[in-house]
């Protein structure tokens, strides 16, 4: 049975943007500097430092990326634009190149893949561009499983000019019936030695294709609980022993860093993680144990009242 996924997948992240795909005659421009791209309004998407799994970003700096999307006769193209004071175009000993990736969910299911490159049973595909000329299609189902796929026609071109990278990525698609599509972005700053998990990434966003029937209302971005109470509960419920988040003086690294939990994750994912921690296990070392081939999170399921849960949720969603 084939379904359109977007209906099931939404709501997405707390701050998911709606990125309209513009229909163009012919094919989208391959040159990211083309006026055909630059004339189109861009959607700004916030980026957060990856901190769930080591090696994690030390800098707390958030970022932002501007996204445009176009659909031609046969191809889908995305145009990414982000500031970078200095281009890093080559890789060498201790040298890293600027890069960007577009992430797609692969597996239809009830929940979106974990934002950090999916999770077991919920793979993602990636279009990967790097300033040294590398363009790849990759797939992963969790951190550490990134696997290069044979070339499938993904094209990308990047141009750095006046402190801005602009990259156009495109690929033939043959599924005209789609209306909406989850998508996420990541950017690496080479001269900051960013590579692998050292990156800035977005939450899942929505790509809205031309002719999508309705504009779906974005989900609640807040819980009904109290963030202030939630912050106190982080201590009381023992969360602070393992998770780092603003205001936790212990800065523990036993479990994923929650500094930007609200920025990267949807409320339902966070709620599910509390309720059923082993459902989606973040594949960091020490975050889980293997039991009978199954990964079991070291985090105990949340015990407490619904109100407490909502308070915690409210607090986490406030972390952006």
């Amino acid at each position: 049975m084939r379904r359109l996924l977007f209906a099931l997948l939404l709501p997405l992240a707390a701050i998911a943007a709606d990125i309209p795909v513009q229909r163009v005659d012919g094919e989208p421009a391959a040159d990211p500097m083309s006026s055909a791209w630059l004339a189109q309004a861009a959607v700004a998407v916030p980026l957060y430092p990856q901190a769930s799994v080591p090696p994690a970003m030390k800098a707390a700096g958030k970022g932002s990326i501007k996204v445009r999307a176009q659909r031609g006769a046969t191809t889908l193209a995305l145009h990414l634009e982000w500031p970078d004071r200095k281009p890093a175009a080559s890789r060498g000993v201790g040298e890293f190149a600027d890069a960007a990736a577009v992430q797609w969910p692969l597996q239809p299911g009830a929940a979106l893949p974990y934002i950090g490159m999916g999770h077991r049973g919920a793979p993602v595909a990636l279009w990967f561009w790097r300033a040294d000329g590398t363009v790849e299609t990759l797939a992963a189902e969790g951190f550490g499983t990134l696997t290069a796929q044979p070339g499938d026609g993904v094209k990308a071109k990047g141009v750095w000019k006046n402190g801005v990278w602009r990259v156009a990525l495109s690929r033939a698609v043959n599924k005209p019936a789609m209306e909406r599509m989850p998508v996420a972005f990541a950017v690496w700053n080479g001269e900051g030695a960013e590579r692998a998990g050292l990156k800035r990434l977005s939450a899942w966003q929505t790509l809205r294709f031309p002719g999508a029937t309705a504009k779906v209302s974005l989900p609640d971005t807040a819980s009904s609980g109290s963030a202030a109470r939630g912050k106190r509960l982080m201590q009381a419920k023992g969360c602070a022993a393992c998770h780092n988040y603003p205001g936790n003086p212990a800065k523990p690294r036993i479990a994923p860093d929650l500094s930007h939990a609200g920025g990267l994750h949807a409320a339902d994912y966070l709620a599910e993680s509390m309720r059923e921690p082993s459902k989606i296990v973040v594949p960091g070392k020490g975050y889980f144990t293997e039991q009978g081939g199954r990964r079991v999170s070291i985090m105990p399921p949340f015990e407490g009242s619904e109100a407490e849960r909502d308070d915690l949720l409210a607090f986490l969603l406030s972390l952006r």
Binding site: R2, P108, T137, A139, N174
Partner: peptide, 9 residues
């Protein structure tokens, strides 16, 4: 699934 086809894999 649709997404797989979308990503071309």
């Amino acid at each position: 699934g649709a997404c797989g086809l979308m990503a071309g894999l």
